[in-house]
Amino acid sequence: MRTVGFLVNPIAGMGGAVGLSGTDGGVEEAVRRGAVPHAAVRAARTLSLLRDEDIAWCTCASPMGEDVLTGAGIDSYTVLYRPTVPTGAADTTAACRVFLAAGVDLIVFCGGDGTARDVFDAVGGEVPILGIPAGVKMYSAVFAVNPAAAADLVRRAGDIPCRDSEVMDVDEEAYRSGRLTARLYGYACVPFVPERIQGGKQVFEQQDEERAKDDIAAFITEIMLPETLYIIGAGSTTARVMERLGLAPTLLGVDAVVNAEIVASNADERTLLALLDEHPRAKIVVSPIGAQGFVLGRGNQQISPAVLRKAGLSNLIVVATPAKLAGTPLLYVDSGDAALDREVGDSMLVVSGYRMAQRKRVVHSE
Rank of each mutant, 00 (worst) to 15 (best):
T3V: 14
G5L: 02
I11F: 15
V18D: 02
T23I: 12
V27Q: 06
V27E: 11
V27C: 00
R32E: 14
A35G: 05
H38E: 13
H38K: 14
A40Q: 11
V41R: 14
L50E: 06
E53L: 10
P63R: 10
M64I: 07
V68E: 08
A72G: 07
L80E: 13
R82K: 11
T84K: 15
T92V: 14
T93K: 11
A94L: 03
R97H: 12
F99K: 05
D113C: 05
G124R: 03
V127K: 00
I129L: 03
I132D: 09
P133K: 02
G135Y: 07
K137I: 09
I160E: 08
C162S: 15
M168Q: 11
D169Y: 09
D169E: 12
D171A: 11
R183L: 08
R183I: 12
Y185W: 10
P194T: 01
I197D: 03
V203P: 00
E205S: 14
A212P: 01
K213M: 15
A217M: 06
T238A: 10
M242P: 00
A248W: 02
P249C: 12
G253M: 06
V254R: 01
A256T: 01
V263D: 04
A264F: 05
D268Y: 08
E278R: 14
S287I: 03
V295M: 08
Q301G: 01
L308K: 06
K310R: 15
N315R: 12
L316Q: 05
P322Y: 04
T328L: 04
L330Y: 13
Y332S: 02
G336H: 00
L340D: 07
G345C: 05
L349R: 14
S352P: 01
R359L: 11
